[in-house]
Every structure is written in structure tokens, then in C-alpha cells.
């Protein structure tokens, strides 16, 4: 088999996962609705003072985005694990890390991208000025793929377990700390009138690292879960 045909399934997997997500539109939109609701809870708790809201907006949006991605993670490998497709993937000539990466890309397109696009709307709700909303969009665009990639490791480790859901958050949340710090830090720097490039560049570096290492770790984790 030529190397090209070994990688041929990847676009097909992405197409299949997107199609599946389109069929279950309600379920796919849940993380986005969760995000919107959590963010609108904060003004109710903090009070409607625009200054106060603007000051904590970065943290609110980022923590809410992090939790909504975490919430959607469980779907990542669940159905493929249950119906046995995952074992077929593992047996296929295509390297498992590449397959994992395409699954994560599809997952991000379904649950991460809407979060990114909702960024400016959330910024408006929380009284962030225009250029800060722009930074928020950038930080979410760089940060949410890392959330999906790092999260996939936790899902890979727990996919065979009955009560994996809560365990995933326990495993993955400490690993999300740097993403939260740089993501929310970028927005905070921008709203303080400081350059946010350094934060965004460091997020980008983490994305590059996660893009290379996370699929390998996830593939190894899945192999253990399937054994």
C-alpha cells in the first residue's frame, strides 16, 4: 500500500464526523448553548456594573469556554469505541495518531469553532471594547484547539470506563492551566492597553507542541483502553 492511500481515510473521517454532527444538530449545539448560559449567569451573580464586568470578562469567557469544551469532550471517541470502529481504526494501515488528529479536528470544528465565533458576542455582552474583542477572538482561535487536543488524551485514557466523564475533568483541568493563563492574560493585557502579542505567541507555541505530541499520547492511551 502506498503512503498516500494510507492517509486517504483522514479527510473521510473528518467528513463522516461532520456529517454525524449535522445529523444530531441539537447535541452538537449543546456546548455553545452551555457557554452562552454560563456567561450570562455571571452578570446575574456579579451585578450589572459594566466596569466590574469588563474587568472580569477575560476570566469569565475563558473559564466558560474551557468548561464547554470539556463538556463536549466525552463525545470524542465514545460512539466509535462503543460500536467497535475504533478497533478497526487501530488495525488499519493508517497510523493511529493521524486518525486521532483527524477526529480531534472534526471535534474542534463542531464544538470549538462555534465557541471561537461566539467570542465577539460574549465580549459585547460583557462590555469589552472592540479591539479587546478582536484579541479575545484570536486567543480563543489559538486556545480552543489546544483544549481539544489536550483533552483528547484524557478521553483516550478513560473511554473504556463507565464513569469516565467526571474523571476526564480531573485529569485534564490541571493541564489546562497554562492555556487559561495565556488566553485570559492576552485579553486582560489588551483591555489594559498593553500589547498581547507575547501571550498569543506563547499560545501558538503550545498549539504547535500539542499538535505534535497530543495525538501520539492519545493514540497510545486508546491502545491501552482497547487492550
Amino acid at each position: 500500500m502506498s503512503p498516500q492511500s494510507a492517509f486517504a481515510p483522514l479527510p473521510a473521517i473528518i467528513r463522516r464526523d461532520l456529517l454525524l454532527a449535522m445529523r444530531r444538530r441539537g447535541e452538537s449545539l449543546t456546548p455553545l448553548l452551555f457557554l452562552l448560559m454560563v456567561v450570562s449567569l455571571f452578570p446575574l451573580g456579579l451585578g450589572p456594573d459594566p466596569v466590574k464586568l469588563g474587568a472580569s470578562a477575560a476570566a469569565i469567557v475563558w473559564v466558560a469556554a474551557l468548561l464547554s469544551v470539556l463538556l463536549s469532550l466525552e463525545r470524542l471517541f465514545r460512539s466509535d469505541f462503543d460500536d467497535g470502529s475504533l478497533e478497526q481504526f487501530a488495525l488499519s494501515p493508517c497510523p493511529l495518531p493521524a486518525l486521532v488528529l483527524s477526529k480531534v479536528v472534526a471535534h474542534w470544528l463542531v464544538s470549538g469553532l462555534p465557541v471561537v465565533l461566539a467570542g465577539p458576542i460574549l465580549a459585547m455582552m460583557l462590555n469589552l471594547p472592540g479591539h479587546v474583542a478582536w484579541t479575545l477572538l484570536h486567543s480563543l482561535a489559538l486556545g480552543t484547539p489546544i483544549l481539544s487536543l489536550v483533552g483528547s488524551i484524557g478521553v483516550g485514557l478513560t473511554v473504556g470506563l463507565r464513569r469516565g466523564g467526571i474523571l476526564v475533568s480531573l485529569l485534564v483541568l490541571p493541564l489546562y492551566v497554562p492555556i487559561l493563563i495565556f488566553g485570559a492574560g492576552a485579553v486582560q493585557a489588551a483591555s489594559g492597553g498593553l500589547p498581547s502579542d507575547a501571550h498569543l505567541l506563547l499560545l501558538g507555541a503550545q498549539l504547535a507542541l500539542a499538535l505534535v505530541l497530543a495525538p501520539i499520547a492519545t493514540a497510545a492511551a486508546l491502545r491501552i483502553s482497547m487492550s
Binding site: 485514557l157 493541564l175 495565556f182
Partner: peptide, 20 residues
């Protein structure tokens, strides 16, 4: 599984440390 998690953690600890 623990070994994989520990390895992921050990790659992350310097990043976490630096970010904090």
C-alpha cells in the same frame, strides 16, 4: 494508563511552572 498520564504531566509541568 498511569504511565501515559505521568508522561503527559511531566511534559506539561515545565509549561505550567513557567506560565504560573
Amino acid at each position: 494508563a498511569v504511565a501515559i498520564l505521568a508522561l503527559v504531566g511531566v511534559v506539561n509541568i515545565p509549561i505550567i511552572h513557567f506560565s504560573v
